[in-house]
Amino acid sequence: MGSEAMKITLKVWRQPNSKAEGKFETYQLDHVSPDMSFLEMFDVLNEQLIAEGGEPVAFDHDCREGICGMCSMFINGRPHGPKQAVTTCQLHMRSFKDGDTIVVEPWRAQSFPVIKDLTVDRSAFDRIIAAGGFVSVNTGNAVDANSILIPKDTADDAFAAATCIGCGACVAACKNSSAMLFVSAKVSQLALLPQGQAERENRVIAMVDQMDKEGFGSCTNTGACSAECPKEIDLSNIARMNREYVRAKLVSK
């Protein structure tokens, strides 16, 4: 704790709005504490920019504890930076070295248009969930919770898939800008659980159709999504979705 302050050079993507051309700007920060989070470093930068009469860098962030999925920086060529299983907000400056130059960009995908600077529009994800990422059970319809017995392993697998925070790092990392990991996580969760069986076929078809409509690329199994996923969602979910989808296409009426 409390080691020496670091000097960091930031190359940050600046783009005033979705229509404008963007470009990289370089900023110098001289007193970065290794215990700072990456976003706290941006707070410092922004305070500095405002004090100088400049425009602060717009970036998405909210919970700052790695769970809301809002933060979304592409850092030195990788979503959420160099550490495994960590969101940008949980990335600390001790993961960098004094004198480093860090390149920070927004997620880049046709389906995630830039709103401003490092902020992108990820509403495509909401539309995919709206297409089928649910169990159609109105409030009040439920039976007693323990009347649905679910083997622990199944519940654990469903939970592991359900931990997706919808940050979009999978799309950002994928060279194809594919959203398969995101979509498959939800498809898997509900395909594994007995509660999801009734809508199993319709769900996967509707969600994949919406995913395609949004303009995400196709999966080529590079595995980048899973490797960069801050929640380490497994590639087996994509395999499961493929199975579910083909099965649904072959058997559904």
Partner: peptide, 20 residues
């Protein structure tokens, strides 16, 4: 009722080996 509703939605609560 909340627990029932959430389970029906597919919320993956922690479970015992017997499935409860």
């Amino acid at each position: 009722n909340i627990i029932d509703q959430c389970v029906a939605q597919g919320v993956p609560f922690a479970r015992e080996y017997g499935g409860t």
